[in-house]
Design a protein around this nucleic acid. Structure first.
Length: 911
DNA sequence: GAGCACTGC
């Protein structure tokens, strides 16, 4: 039943054929036999000719065709990995990269030193590696180091139809790299593998590939799946509809596993309970406990969603109460050969060992969310029940607010789900919605890049010196100090254009080398200053992984379970309070909890037992552990003097370090500050305990799970805002208002320096200091006046001149102060200009740019290179002789300054 | 006073 293969479009004249290369492969007879069944094998000739004659080739076909495992082998046999180049294959998921490399190594009878993989945390590549499977993000990082990907002769992008962000960006970059490599005489071949439906995305995009690349279509080994639509579409109760459908399938249809697609964890729980109640078997272990629970996500879906249904089923009262005649009839289980057979992806080799076969005399029923669509393959599924919906995260690019919504899936997703029924034999897919509804589905899910924040991507592109016109992300990066701020001159349009072409700063380069979001990368880059790096790394790891804690909020089925869940929630809340601590520690808020949780978990050896006891997600803790190791290595690579290591017995941070961490969080997440509405300003009830953020008009609230929920600090920084019943901030840290102007000057509008307290001279930095009040951008919150460097401008020269004459800058000058014709304070008077001597002094300082001690000494040094060079090595400020020389110099030559102000006699005596 | 799908560096 394979799709006819059109010949690849060939160029009018073929280049002279090259001598055929053939690298022998020693496959076992069993492997060879199995390969022959794969549709792709019949196309080897076609594929290889297309690759020979084209720089870019698209291979389309569902995963059942075997293209992922076979095409790299074709290329290897044709010599694409002999000599100085290797074959690279990207996958959107880690499991796929690992399992594919193992599978291909086995098929080719080669060691994993030759057919290897690389994922974020680990890999087995060697200098002998010829075929390298990797996740898409890994290859993107490699481009950052070697833009032309010189070690590869071929790059295969697998699963391109999934349109994952990294895959999208890779294809964009490779479309530019391929011609560059051709120009250099070391051609790189690009093979894009995609499901048939989405091939146009790549071939019809002329800015990607001006010459349309040839497409080779391959059939699948997929068995026919008959699709049955509901006549009616339930309004809301798709879970109930699923339940009824499962009951009917189970009662009336031949053996074979059932896979049910729902949208969320709670639904999965509740449907499983309902099924167990209706078809009781031996007790199924509670998902929240039991030693078989290796990891949360997988086991959740394995243990509690694998419901063996007994053949001698119990009376199904709930199904019996089904009043919907039409949906309840047996007609909709029609097994006749419909023409609705749809091929869908079904093959992900390396089936998860988590799924145990159903016990004898029972039927396997798996209730799952989206995971089962691409990430998991469950053996023995013959029936798919598809509610047609999925829960997706929506992200508002303007406000940064996340929401989770249950929406209709795309036609492509529905077909993907249906395909899961045809893996081992012909199957059936029951769609709990009508064909009319299906026809209204979007053809595809929107590409991921359109639905997520892009700041990290822009930074990476900048690191590659690629321009991208994404204004808001650029603004964020400028605010973080990762990009150089554009010049504030010129017309508006020029300004906008300047923004888009901001070069990357040294800080930005350092940030780009950390494989985390730019906000977190900035925290890491800053942590070097205060001996907080190991804490910052731990914090950033945990925040990147997110959702550290198990969710015990699901509705319970009976009193016993209610109590159990209540107990678990109480235990977690208690631990969170302990980890958060009191006083200074508590101000770090939910991030202190995270730090404490990771610290305690590692201290206990990161065991499953510890995680279960304390409501931590074991899988999350393992991921944090690996990310910590990676970030520690990355940090050591940038700052070798740091000498960091992952300390499993890391001590809690000192109070001073906690404060530094809070400041780092603020510096990294300066645009995610919220202020509590002062109780006196609460006019409407909806603003009670509410916070205001710069970007939202509506009130936001502290999430009840936060340890700061009852604290209600005036200023907080949040990690995210999720809109559920209200707008809730999560991941909170308390910050001090006076930090904002100092750490976030770019978000602050400063007022004029205050007259009281008066500006002062800082003997340590040699600069003029002052106090300034300020307001926070957009919302105009009044911020307390803080001490800071005096702003640039004429006034700074005035103050510096005053301090100079007062002897604050050069101590020795103090002895001359009494000889001055007028008090140094005259310089600050509005009428000072009327005194020519003060004006001449100011002009002299300004023309040399002398408004701090360093500038003064530099100018002096420059002007008196020969005369005073030797003495400058001495400490000018404390050596009387030098100070006098300096003073004389100031009076006589270059700056002319004191002459005009200082009493003539005094000058004569010193000269 | 609550309830979040999945994935990658």
């Amino acid at each position: 039943n394979s799709i006819p293969v059109p010949p690849p479009r060939s160029p009018p004249t073929l280049p002279p054929s090259q001598p055929a290369i053939f690298i022998p492969v020693d496959r076992s007879p069993e492997i060879q036999e199995a390969r022959l069944l794969l549709p792709i094998l019949a196309e080897e000739q076609v594929v290889m000719e297309a690759v020979t004659h084209n720089r870019v080739v698209v291979i389309s076909g569902e995963t059942g065709s075997g293209k992922t495992t076979q095409v790299p082998q074709f290329l290897y046999e044709a010599g694409y990995a002999s000599g100085d180049g290797i074959i690279g294959v990207t996958e959107p998921r880690r499991v796929a990269a690992v399992s594919m490399s193992q599978r291909v190594a086995k098929e080719m009878n080669l060691s994993d030193r030759v057919v290897s993989y690389q994922i974020r945390y680990e890999g087995n590549t060697t200098e002998n590696t010829k075929i390298k499977f990797m996740t898409d993000g890994v290859l993107l990082k490699e481009i950052q180091r070697d833009f032309l990907l010189t070690k590869y002769k071929v790059i295969i992008i697998d699963e391109a139809h999934e349109r994952s962000v990294y895959t999208d960006i890779l294809i964009g970059l490779l479309s530019r790299i391929v011609p560059l490599r051709a120009k250099r005489g070391r051609p790189l071949k690009l093979i894009i593998m995609s499901a048939t439906l989405r091939v146009e995305d790549f071939t019809a995009n002329e800015s990607l590939f001006p010459a349309r690349p040839p497409v080779i279509e391959v059939g699948t080994r997929q068995f026919a799946v008959t699709v049955h639509f509901n006549k009616r579409t339930p309004l809301d109760d798709y879970a109930g509809e699923a339940f009824r459908k499962i009951c009917k399938i189970h009662r009336m249809l031949p053996p074979g596993g059932i896979l049910v697609f729902l949208t969320g964890q709670a639904e999965v729980h509740s449907l499983c309970r309902r099924l167990r109640r209706s078809f009781p078997h031996r007790p199924v272990p509670d998902p929240g406990e039991g030693e078989g629970r290796k990891s949360q996500t997988w086991i959740d879906l394995a243990n509690y969603s694998s419901v063996p249904l007994e053949e001698e089923e119990a009376e199904d009262r709930e199904a019996g109460s089904d009043g919907d005649g039409e949906a309840g009839s047996e007609a909709d289980l029609d097994l006749g050969d419909g023409d609705g057979a749809e091929a869908g992806e079904c093959l992900t080799p390396g089936v998860s060992p988590v799924f145990r076969p159903a016990p004898g005399g029972t039927r396997l029923c798996v209730v799952a969310t989206n995971v089962a669509e691409t990430s998991l393959t469950i053996p023995g599924i013959k029936y798919v029940v598809d509610c047609g919906k999925s829960k997706r995260r929506f992200y508002d690019q303007l406000t940064g607010v996340s929401t989770f919504r249950v929406t209709w899936i795309s036609q492509a997703s529905a077909n993907q789900r249906a395909g899961r029924a045809g893996r081992t034999e012909p199957g059936h897919c029951y769609r709990l919605y009508s064909s009319a509804v299906f026809a209204d589905f979007e053809e595809f899910s929107p590409a991921e890049i359109t639905r997520r924040p892009v700041d990290d991507l822009v930074l990476q592109m900048k690191d590659l010196n690629i321009e991208k016109s994404l204004v808001s992300a650029e603004e964020l990066l400028i605010s973080l100090g990762a990009l150089v701020e554009p010049l504030q001159t010129g017309r508006y349009k020029e300004l906008e254009r300047a923004k888009l072409s901001c070069p990357i700063s040294p800080l930005g380069r350092a940030m780009a080398s950390f494989p985390v979001a730019p906000r977190y990368a900035k925290m890491l880059a800053l942590s070097r200053q205060h001996d907080c790096m190991q804490y910052a790394i731990t914090l950033v790891s945990a925040l990147t992984v997110r959702e550290l804690f198990e969710e015990f909020n699901r509705p319970a089925v009976n009193e016993e379970e209610t109590q159990k869940l209540k107990g678990k929630r109480a235990r977690v809340a208690q631990m969170q309070r302990i980890w958060a601590g009191q006083g200074v520690s508590l101000k770090l808020g939910d991030l202190m909890v995270v730090l404490g949780a990771v610290g305690a978990c590692e201290f206990a050896g990161c065991t499953l037992h510890f995680c279960t006891q304390n409501g931590l997600r074991y899988k999350a803790m393992l991921e944090i552990r690996r990310l910590r190791a990676q970030l520690t290595n990355a940090t050591n690579a940038i700052y070798p003097e740091a000498g960091l290591f992952v300390d499993p017995k890391m001590k809690p941070p000192l109070e001073s370090q906690v404060t530094m961490l809070r400041q780092m969080v603020l510096a990294g997440l300066g645009d995610q500050v919220a202020r509590r509405l002062p109780p006196g300003e609460v006019l409407e009830d909806k603003w009670r305990n509410a916070y205001k953020t710069p970007l939202l008009d509506d009130p936001v609230f502290i999430h009840p799970s936060s340890v700061l929920f009852k604290q209600l600090p005036e200023f907080v920084v949040y990690q995210e805002i999720v809109e559920t019943s209200k707008m809730y901030m999560k991941g909170l840290t308390e910050i001090e208002a006076e930090w904002i102007p100092l750490l976030l000057p770019r978000y602050t509008h400063f007022e004029k320096p205050l007259e009281s307290p008066p500006p002062s001279y800082c003997p340590d930095t040699g600069r003029v200091r002052c106090h300034r009040a300020s307001t926070f951008y957009r919302v105009g919150w009044q911020l307390p006046a803080v001490e800071m460097d005096y702003p640039e401008g004429l006034d700074r020269f005035k103050h510096f001149a005053k301090f100079l004459l007062e002897g604050k800058v050069i101590k020795k000058f103090a002895s001359y102060t009494s000889c001055l014709l007028s008090s140094p304070a005259v310089l600050l008077k509005t009428w000072a200009k009327l005194q020519p001597r003060t004006d001449i002094l100011l002009q002299a300082l300004a023309s040399e740019g002398v408004d701090c001690r360093e500038a003064l000494l530099t100018t002096w040094k420059k002007s008196n290179q020969c005369e005073y060079n030797r003495r400058l090595d001495l400490d000018v400020l404390h050596c009387g002789l030098c100070a006098e020389e300096l003073y004389r110099w100031l009076c006589s030559v270059d700056l002319l300054l004191a002459l005009c102000v200082v009493n003539r006699c005094s000058v004569e005596t010193t000269q």
